[in-house]
């Protein structure tokens, strides 16, 4: 077992444990913080796979930007997780299904999630995978830059438009009534 393998396994374990805590912790702020740890671990795994650029992007975007967004949303909306909140809405068969889902460690979601992971595992087992190509790869940042601004320049531009639209959309959605009034008063 090489050092790289040990590193991978350790990161993987941290990532999965953090994800487990994200899903199960009772307090939403804790979940958000565990999420950061999980993202950082994923970034580390990227590094073991020689994806240096993605490592940086993962840290910046996920561990930085998205985390900030989530925490802001939690603070702004004053969201508290309420536990054991009575019977779920709905009636009849649907209510029964609903109950299966909404119990805190609901059986049906767990079954589906485990089933999915198991199916994927069996698929991976059955497929012959090629070994690692020999030699260390060249640093990938340059190659990514080439691809992004060459082959994928149009999707790249489109992605920037998607981001812009998302930004505008988020602003419009959360615009308070007061702000709008102020704008109307301007000539």
């Amino acid at each position: 077992m090489t050092g790289l393998q040990i590193a991978f396994l350790a990161l993987s374990a941290v990532m999965l444990f953090a994800a487990w805590k994200v899903v199960t912790s009772d307090i939403i702020v804790h979940a958000a913080l565990w999420m950061v740890l999980s993202f950082v671990a994923v970034a580390g795994i990227f590094l073991t796979l020689h994806a240096e650029f993605l490592f940086a992007v993962q840290l910046l975007v996920y561990a930085g930007a998205i985390t900030a967004l989530v925490i802001f949303a939690i603070m702004l909306s004053d969201i508290r997780e309420l536990r054991g909140e009575g019977e779920p809405a709905g009636a009849g068969l649907g209510r029964r299904v609903r109950r299966l889902v909404s119990r805190r460690l609901g059986l049906a979601p767990a079954a589906v999630a485990v089933g999915f992971a198991a199916v994927m595992y069996s698929v991976y087992r059955a497929t012959p995978w090629p070994g690692l190509p020999p030699g260390d790869p060249a640093p990938s940042t340059l190659a990514i830059g080439r691809e992004l601004f060459g082959t994928y320049v149009v999707p790249f531009e489109l992605a920037s438009i998607v981001l812009l639209v998302a930004m505008v959309g988020a602003i419009v959605l959360t615009l308070r009534e007061g702000g709008r009034e102020k704008e109307e008063k301007r000539p």
Binding site: M15, L16, A19, W20, V22, V23, S38, V42, V101, S102, R103, R104, L105, G106, A108, P109, A110, V112, A113, V114, F116, A117, M120, Y121, Y124
Partner: peptide, 14 residues
């Protein structure tokens, strides 16, 4: 796959 499973569970159960 395990990470995806955890995420899926979270999305469904919470």
């Amino acid at each position: 796959a395990l990470l995806f499973g955890l995420g899926l569970y979270g999305a469904l159960a919470r």
